[in-house]
Simulated assay, not measured.
Amino acid sequence: MIDLLRQFVVETGKPLDIILVGAMALPFYHVKLRFTQDLDAEIKQGDIEELYSYLKAKGLESDLSENISGWSIISMPSGYRERSRVVYKDQLLTIRVLSPEDYIIMKLRRGTAQDIEDAIEVAIAQKVKKEDLEVLFEKVLKESIKDTALFNFRRIYQVFTEELGRKVYNQNRPMP
């Protein structure tokens, strides 16, 4: 992926600064990359349409936005951009990933079985503390508009914490 994005910035001569938010970010959290055929990212700097067309021409689907918080009724916690960390940087290309806690919230906003599994894997690999995640979860509830989607988000978060607890317990590790 880095090579493809480097190729894009070299060919266009334009800078690109992105935050990876999907499965392609997993290796940066020390989680094995699972099969995925798309790139999910927030574009901090760069031409979304040009990048989308470029990736499409290379056979890669993408979901790109200037504001990933808008992908759901459930808001991303304020400050997620500032908490993102750079995982690759050269003259034209900057690739970032969300903090582990923000990535977990991102995944739980959608809440599929695969999203919950990704969130669990990141929580374990990054030793995310339950207390830190709880603070962020409560922040999201306060910052999101009141909607029935919040009920589902609470349920998904509960499933996540229960599954995480079982997985950690079964691996005989103390829960973070």
Rank of each mutant, 00 (worst) to 15 (best):
A125F: 01
G22Y: 07
E42N: 12
S53K: 13
I116M: 04
P77T: 12
K130N: 07
F137Q: 00
S78C: 02
N67L: 12
P100N: 08
D3G: 08
R155V: 09
S69T: 15
L133N: 03
S84R: 10
D63H: 12
Y54D: 13
E50T: 15
T12W: 00
A149M: 07
D40E: 15
T12F: 00
F35A: 14
L98E: 09
F137W: 06
W71K: 02
Y80C: 03
E82M: 04
G59H: 04
M76E: 06
K14Y: 05
E131C: 04
F28M: 07
D47H: 14
M106P: 01
Q171E: 15
E82D: 14
Y29R: 11
F151H: 03
R109H: 06
Y88W: 08
L108I: 05
L26W: 01
G165W: 08
E138R: 15
S69A: 06
I156C: 01
V122Q: 04
Q158M: 02
D118R: 09
F160M: 10
Q114P: 02
Y88I: 11
L141I: 14
S99R: 11
P15W: 07
T148N: 05
V10L: 11
V168F: 01
L164V: 02
K142T: 08
S144A: 02
Q171D: 13
G13F: 10
Y88F: 15
T36C: 05
L39A: 03
K44G: 12
I105M: 10
E143P: 11
G79P: 06
M76N: 11
N170H: 13
F151I: 14
S62V: 06
L98C: 07
K107G: 00
V9T: 11
S69G: 15
P100T: 03
V86W: 10
L20Y: 09
D90A: 01
Y54A: 13
Y88L: 11
V9K: 00
R166W: 13
L136C: 08
V122S: 03
D115L: 13
F160I: 06
D132P: 01
S75G: 00
P77R: 12
D102L: 00
G111S: 05
K146Y: 10
